[in-house]
Design a protein around this nucleic acid. Structure first.
Lengths: 107, 107
DNA sequence: CTCTAATGTTAGCGTTGGCTTACGGTAAGC
DNA sequence: GCTTACCGTAAGCCAACGCTAACATTAGAG
């Protein structure tokens, strides 16, 4: 459902980099852009996407604007992944066992 | 690192749909394309991307070609997520507590 | 009130990405 | 050998994306 936005947001390397830096602690736009190879408006746009995906939250701090991690978005991806981890692994193991039965070390 | 490919692969909705169908069990290209709103070559290209991302494996079966889930790719994403889950959540909680200290229900 | 710093927003450009159509290749059946 | 079924690949089209540059906006210092 909405995890669509979260996955799409985390697909871009630059955006993941921004997200990883925010994971270390809250930060403003200028601070983030200073350590990245892209311009400040680019970081602002990335933050907008991350915000719409429920991955970050923003809060005004004077003339600045501080962004920080929002666990909600990560939770959605984690839920999707956990729901799959079992079924996918079961199907995988079942297939491996099925092949072991069909090819039981024929001499 | 390589989880870049996995995230990019899972970003596309159609590709996630293909992946989810494969999670239910192995399948061939034609079978997958039959239940999807895109053509068969499109599914083939999606499977190529999923394969390069370490999310699926293919195995020839006569004239057909059967694809199935490869837990490796999911494991990479899961590892990335788990590594973040703690730090991100810690930073988030620390910030929440810090705000609680600064705004302790001032009358 | 003016000036400055920090940010969001828009327009435009170049690139990437997904899709279809058409083609080439391989495995089984007649 | 010929035909049929199934699949991968190449070429091309069009929408979406990421980026920069320029402008608009707001908050605080003087």
């Amino acid at each position: 459902m909405a995890n669509n936005l979260a996955f799409a947001a985390l697909a871009d390397p630059t955006r993941r980099e921004v997200f990883e830096r925010l994971a270390a602690g809250p930060s403003a736009v200028g601070e983030l852009a200073q350590g990245l190879p892209v311009s400040r408006p680019a970081v602002s746009q990335h933050l907008k996407v991350l915000k719409e995906a429920g991955l970050v939250t923003d809060r005004p701090d004077g003339a600045r604007r501080v962004y920080q991690i929002d666990p909600q978005g990560l939770g959605q991806i984690r839920a999707w992944l956990d729901r799959f981890w079992d079924t996918a692994l079961d199907a995988f193991k079942a297939e491996v066992e099925r092949n072991d039965d069909e090819e039981p070390k024929a001499p």
